[in-house]
Amino acid sequence: MAVISPPDVAPDLEPAADRAPRRIAFRQRLGKWDVKLSPYLYISPFFLLFAIVGLFPLGYTAWVSLHEWHLIGGKGDFIGFENYSTVLHAAFFWTALRNTFSIFLLSAVPQVFLGLVLAALLDANLRAKTFWRMGVLLPYVVAPVAVGLIFSKMFADQSGLINTLIGHLGIDPIRWHADVLASHFAIATMVNFRWTGYTTLILLAAMQAVPRDLYEASVIDGASRIRQFFSITIPMLRPTIIFVVITSTIGGLQIFDEPKMFDQYGQGGADRQWMTVTMYLYELGWGSQKSFGRAAAVAWILFLIIIVIGLVNFSITRRISSAGSTAGRKSR
């Protein structure tokens, strides 16, 4: 994790003292402070704000998770890790975890794959480039609430657009709200609808930054377009792919809006077919139990899971995309 940034070593950025005349010692000292302090100064807005709107809530939540804590009634006894063990022994927690991963995989994998393919198509010398590029991003402007409304209507079991259409093809209606996998697929579709264009453009932006002479050189070497894509484009996109994978892991494992709006009750189905971890967290805290303590424990467990998955993801992505990238990096 310590090498999120590529292993390039930042050169020493102090104004080259040898070359600069010695007469401006004061200015130099100032420059030294400038170099030493500026980096911290520039990142400080994030950390200051995070301390108030992030760290305080995080610490507060940790404190809550160690207590018997009713959302309205407030703090009860200190009970150590009992909330954690209660949650880990609850069957619903594991159902929720299964659903979360299933929906995550059904959305993240196709998204990165489709994003790469679409970005490669858009990277070509198209007519009306701007039109196509904006077109793929269009769904992103639709609010999640609207996406939920629209798709839950389309996916209605009896009166929905999709089942009606496949009915015309002679296919039996799919039980979107009863069948586990079907419900996951429907929810992943909502996610993919809204986010694929976004992923595509991020990847496209990175593709545009790939030096063109690399391609020219490979054309001379007789490499095919496909070959170019795998041996130049993908390795060169490494930081961006890492970015996309990590952010989609973090976002995907916290998925809430789409499954919540998938039916009229927002609790993940009668048999909890599509209840995700954050929905479970919400139900514990804001549902009739109002156990803020247990909800906080779920939040922390989820937090740790995401960190672990993020690390695993990171190392896998790095290994895959660094294979064969040596040539590309050297020529830069």
Partner: peptide, 17 residues
């Protein structure tokens, strides 16, 4: 790494604090 890790904090619970 810390910055990235902060993204992993589930937001629903943060509402109350």
């Amino acid at each position: 790494v810390f910055v990235i890790a902060t993204m992993a904090v589930p937001t629903q619970l943060g509402i109350v604090p």
